[in-house]
Design a protein around this nucleic acid. Structure first.
Lengths: 226, 226
DNA sequence: TAGATTGTTAATCGATTAACAATC
DNA sequence: TAGATTGTTAATCGATTAACAATC
């Protein structure tokens, strides 16, 4: 199942959406691809190309209606699908997701959380009930769940994911910093690998430092020569 | 300052590194680009291309030494640079980063955290002292800090980031789900936008559902026809 | 109507893949 | 030496940008 639109385009839509919501808040009614482009740091062409791969949302000579486009993008992203999620692993990160991240804002319903820790079982976090991980198969057999948020420790990431797949889960939002699924599987996995992200930042910091150091040396040489 | 290597390549390195560490754990001494490729779901060509943009790490007819390559990638990613970081915002997510995420493993030293909440100030979290946000300018003027981890609420994201820039911060690891810096600035920002990530997953789930529904209809038609 | 801006086609650019000579 | 696999050059493919006719 090869997607019809480029992954790059899909991943740029949320950025457009954020800019549009800010525009909406600031009272803007219309926006051109040129304006939006300046806002998000992309070319007008790219924005028009990206949008046109999902439909026609603009009006010639006018631009885009901010509210309309914003809503259209939300629909494209599936926020109206009523996706239902469970969260597995109520450690520090899991807890902070339940308590601080607004799943509803992205159109996702977080219906339950699961953990091994006896102390947590039976409690509610931000309105979300916490059940024993042992009851997962039972729970999943009688509830329609579309997605699992994986927030278990690295070491159990793969085994938990595989179990969940057995119980019928077909999509993961994965916070374990581990690759949990074979790259050839058709299970959807969206990784939020903090460690990869920090490493990339670290790389660019190092690159920048090296570049600045080189520049400095070059300038010193020039100073000496002249 | 245009980077010399493609961003895609940079962002694939952490994935290679993870696979290599697993190989190392499992006792593997050598690995070919073909093997590594199968492991991470990429072509051998791509792996060789990516690596060759940073240097020559392999041996013809042999492949790569697992430990060597692993260490080389770590050096490329700057884990030996001793980058020093502060974390700003000790709410749920900030706290869970301090307590659960291993900065050291990525070669980053988390030297202090800052918050507004009186109750937290003066305490230590996982060995990291928590100071008052008011003391930030003073702290930054007498400590060499390379990076700020932004874990403040969305609404204060931009203002906090701008202040930190005034105080000399030039790199951000941004968890606020907000774009904090103009796309034309030369400040480094690595965004970890949970909301963008979840939206992308939601999109692919919706796309998959639509695709499967179409397939089902097609099969029904065939069934009726035949 | 004239001006603006879209959606889309064509041109360019960059990234991925394939091929192969070099060499362990 | 023969076989394997790299690093790199060339070919292909896809993504971005530019241009422009359509049209609000």
């Amino acid at each position: 199942m090869r997607s019809l639109v480029s992954e790059n385009a899909v991943r740029r839509l949320p950025k457009y959406l954020r800019a549009l919501k800010h525009l909406e808040e600031s009272g803007a009614v219309r926006v051109s691809s040129a304006e939006l482009g300046k806002l998000v740091g992309m070319t007008p062409s790219q924005i028009r190309q990206d949008l046109s791969s999902f439909g026609e949302f603009g009006i010639q000579g006018y631009g885009y209606n901010v509210t309309d486009l914003s809503q259209q993008i939300e629909i494209i992203m599936g926020t109206d699908r009523g996706h239902r999620a469970i969260l597995v692993g109520c450690g520090g990160l899991g807890r902070s997701l339940i308590q601080n991240f607004s799943f509803e804002e992205q159109g996702v319903q977080l219906v339950a959380a699961f953990d091994m820790c006896e102390d947590l079982i039976g409690t509610k976090m931000n309105g979300v009930p916490v059940y024993s991980a042992k009851t997962l198969p039972e729970f999943l057999s009688c509830h329609e769940i579309d997605m699992a948020v994986l927030a278990v420790p690295k070491r159990s990431a793969k085994s938990v994911a595989n179990q969940l797949i057995e119980y019928g889960i077909r999509a993961f939002w994965n916070f374990t910093n581990e690759d949990v699924i074979s790259p050839y599987s058709d299970i959807l996995v969206e990784n939020v690998h903090f460690s990869d992200s920090l490493l990339s930042l670290s790389y660019y910091m190092a690159e920048k430092t090296d570049y600045e150091t080189r520049m400095l040396h070059r300038m010193n040489k020039i100073a000496v020569v002249s």
